[in-house]
């Protein structure tokens, strides 16, 4: 199977501080791939490289045959690589519906706007109830739903999720992961970055474990759940 996204020997530094060391990563169409690791392992930095918020230092970054290192971040979005940023980052002074509409900024997606709003509302009925409420007045979980729904408005071919469970109540965490699975079932390829190792390995087809900027382990999600190192270091078993 050919890969949708491919990172080869990707390296990156913040100034003098090397954060990523020769990261190899692949996402095939239709997959949920997760990158897990502890704080500061380089997970978010990997995503920031892919969405070109920062410029990779060395290595290649290919999406569907396009060399992402040559593109600007808004062009990457145009290709259908859409990042749901960490910490939700919704527009607090806009209503839920306005937030969603902002999600179909890219010209090609505007024609599908109504269909995508309907899809967002069917995935997140809560958002339909609250469509006229200001984004900033909603709970953390609702804001996370909105951030994901807004990402879906751009017809993603690859959805990059950065710590979607961050700061949510345990009940909501499970809910969010189920929704991610459902979004994937509807045909959206997902690259998920998470600190919640158990939940993300549970839903992921494949996973990469990042430690201090290096890929130390890779394999199928369920297989890694049984791995001794993972159990010890991340699951506390």
């Amino acid at each position: 199977m050919s890969s949708l996204l491919k990172l080869e020997k990707l390296s990156f530094s913040y100034g003098d501080l090397r954060v990523l060391w020769d990261v190899d990563l692949e996402v095939h169409p239709g997959e949920i791939v997760t990158v897990v690791g502890s704080n500061g392992a380089g997970k978010s930095t990997t995503l920031r490289n892919i969405s070109r918020l920062v410029k990779p230092e060395a290595g290649t970054l290919t999406f569907d045959g396009h060399d992402l290192t040559r593109l600007e971040s808004h062009q990457v979005v145009g290709l259908g690589v859409i990042q749901v940023p960490e910490g939700r980052r919704i527009f607090p002074e806009m209503t839920v519906l306005e937030n969603l509409r902002m999600g179909s900024y890219v010209k090609a997606t505007r024609a599908d706007r109504e269909r995508n709003v309907a899809r967002a509302f069917s995935l997140f009925p809560r958002l339909e109830e609250r469509q006229k409420q200001l984004g900033g007045t909603m709970s953390g979980g609702e804001q996370q739903m909105l951030a994901i729904a807004r990402g879906l408005m751009g017809n993603p071919r690859l959805l990059l999720l950065d710590e979607p469970s961050l700061g949510l109540s345990p009940l909501f965490v499970k809910n969010i992961f189920d929704i991610i699975k459902e979004i994937n079932r509807q045909g959206v390829t997902i690259l998920l970055v998470e600190q919640n190792v158990f939940q993300s390995l549970r839903i992921a087809h494949r996973a990469y474990v990042l430690e201090t900027g290096r890929v130390v382990l890779t394999g199928a999600g369920e297989q890694l759940l049984k791995d001794d190192h993972i159990k010890k270091a991340y699951l506390g078993m």
Binding site: S73, H74, G78, P85, R89, I90, F91, P92, M102, V106
Partner: peptide, 20 residues
């Protein structure tokens, strides 16, 4: 104006939606 306001509200989020 919506793009302007999106930048005002959260420029990183606006950036992530492809707004230059």
């Amino acid at each position: 104006g919506y793009y302007f306001q999106a930048i005002r509200e959260d420029q990183d989020a606006a950036h992530s939606l492809g707004i230059s």
